[in-house]
Amino acid sequence: MSVIEVKNLQKTFRVKKKESGLKGSLKSIIKPTYRQIEAVKGIDFTVSKGEMIAFIGPNGAGKSTTIKMLTGILYPDSGDISILGLDPKKERKKLAYEIGTVFGQKEQLWTHLTPYDNFKFFGAIYDIPEEVVERKIQELKEVFELEEFLNTPVRNLSLGQRIRCEIVASLIHEPKILFLDEPTIGLDPVVKENIRSLIKRMNKEYKTTIFLTSHDVGDIEKLCKRVIIINHGELVLDDTMENLKYHYLNKKMVEAKMKEKVNLEEEEGITILKDKGYNLKIEVDTTLKSVADALKLLNPDNIVDINISNIPLENIITEIYKKEEEK
């Protein structure tokens, strides 16, 4: 059963163009010129109940615009959206009872109140009877381990604790779908991990459908079974994590600084990206060659410094995008 259906969704923003200098500002007051920015150019996809979806793309790709249209914040120019059979354009309030939202960059909590009071406030927003809210808070407190700071004002919490509370606040009304926009942005690795396991547990315990945007590979790798990639407002890829991993995430980048010059030859599983004698940058395809084998080629005794990393998501997307263009 699909809970999200999107057909030919479009959104264009009109931005005022301003020329520099005094003359430019005067001109823009008298006769403004506008630039059309097509943020979302007709995308289609569906999401089934209980799925965990990563909706990814570089900055400005249109992912926030899309998630905002799905949740009823932005009004689409054209196209159809159906969330649990509801149209966010016409039934915004009805929809709001059914979905939860967490925007990593925007806080919905009152900072001078404790998480407990905030949760009560959200209970009132969703018309939940007092005693039901109370029970729900107790339950969420146990599940998400909020005990130690449930009665500390939000402004005194760490960023990680705040995000945790933001997420819990969006669960008070037991939403069927949870939209998360960059939930781990600006968090340190430990906290990120914490948030991820929280999201996972939510999906498991409450069968909540999760729709997540991020540009952190970790979020996507660890959470989602399906990935949708968007770039320049268009869908570039809609595939399972397994496939994506097989094609792209099995490559590692190795940057090494050497004591002596090495003459490395390209072979199966090894691509040389940069070779300046003492400084090397190679890509290792781990399906064909293990990282350990690749290091042996470099002669470990010779390495002064080494850095092994995943290929940045941006690179993967560019790569995917390039392939799309070639087709």
Partner: peptide, 9 residues
């Protein structure tokens, strides 16, 4: 307005 738009009020 985002925060208020996702609330059923």
């Amino acid at each position: 307005l985002d925060a208020y738009l996702v609330q059923p009020k």
